[in-house]
Design a protein around this nucleic acid. Structure first.
Lengths: 159, 159
DNA sequence: CCTTCATGACAACTAAGGTGTCATTATTGG
DNA sequence: CCAATAATGACACCTTAGTTGTCATGAAGG
């Protein structure tokens, strides 16, 4: 039916099909996860966007706004809004950036760390129920595949 | 640091951590993919929503609107809107449903099939470039993991 | 030193997707 | 067979994630 394949043999075509399948899973998964987060995060009063930036800071340490935008494929301006929002609520603070005088580093405050940790812990608790059925190795492979896809789509530049 | 783990030993905790990682990948991936689709689909004039329902019909065959909503974790009303939109442009048609007299089955028209096929083919072409680096088996595992996660989150009910 | 690029700030906008509600029609349990 | 209940479609409104455009400013680097 499809004729757009360049000649790479049947395995390659099979792979492409499977990748399309992955993307068809990502959509619903994203929406369901978002809803779960929405049910939970409001306890701390965190929007999805704020949750995302806090989580980034949590696992990556202090970063600048533009860095975060690039890392998450979000527009610089959007990240900025989230950060300003978080700052207004004392979840993050600005610290001087030795590398760029204009663009300060964003760092979690104690309060911010507590908030994001609480959220993540609750998510972990939910995920924990998933338990057995999935092996560590499988999930690791999944992460590898998704990371690869992500890097591949990186040429889509924002801003 | 986190104390919310029930006692399941270190491997379980490791697994949970990895699952959190998966979710942190799904977000950016979803956004980047959406942007790629947006660059492409407009050629056919398909919104992301319409693309999603057409693709569902394409691989699952005729379904009712509520079925599609459940399958993709989308609200019934949203799917309906997308379908009505698609119907107005003769991409889908309504056929009597033997099982439910009120809720007709939605079926792709020839035109609709052509449109969604063209879109998917273009996506496949892009994905095809990803090539080597990823094995069929790995992607299969990834699909399994994501499917499992999806089913797990299914208790989140819309509407 | 001057040009260029990056950042922050702010406003306007788009679109995805949900929610609430109503009328209608099935389905089902008695 | 009928009443109660649930499912569907339709429509309107709303929320919010996320983008884009623009401007002023200040940094970097030739």
């Amino acid at each position: 039916m499809s004729e757009s394949e360049t000649e790479r043999g049947p395995e390659a075509e099979e792979l492409t099909d499977r990748l399309v399948e992955v993307f068809d899973l990502v959509g619903p998964l994203y929406r369901r996860a978002q809803r779960k987060v929405e049910q939970d995060a409001p306890i701390e009063g965190l929007s999805v966007g704020v949750r995302a930036v806090l989580n980034m800071l949590r696992e990556h340490g202090p970063m600048t706004v533009p860095q975060m935008g690039r890392a998450q494929a979000l527009s610089r301006q959007f990240v900025q809004r989230m950060i300003n929002d978080a700052a207004a609520r004392h979840l993050v603070e600005f610290v001087p950036n030795p590398a760029h005088k204009r663009s300060s580093l964003i760092r979690l405050t104690e309060q911010g760390r507590a908030a994001i940790t609480a959220v993540i812990d609750r998510e972990r608790a939910v995920l924990g129920q998933l338990g057995g059925d999935l092996s560590d190795a499988e999930v690791a492979v999944c992460i590898r595949v998704l990371s690869r896809l992500l890097r591949f789509l990186d040429n889509v530049d924002v801003d």
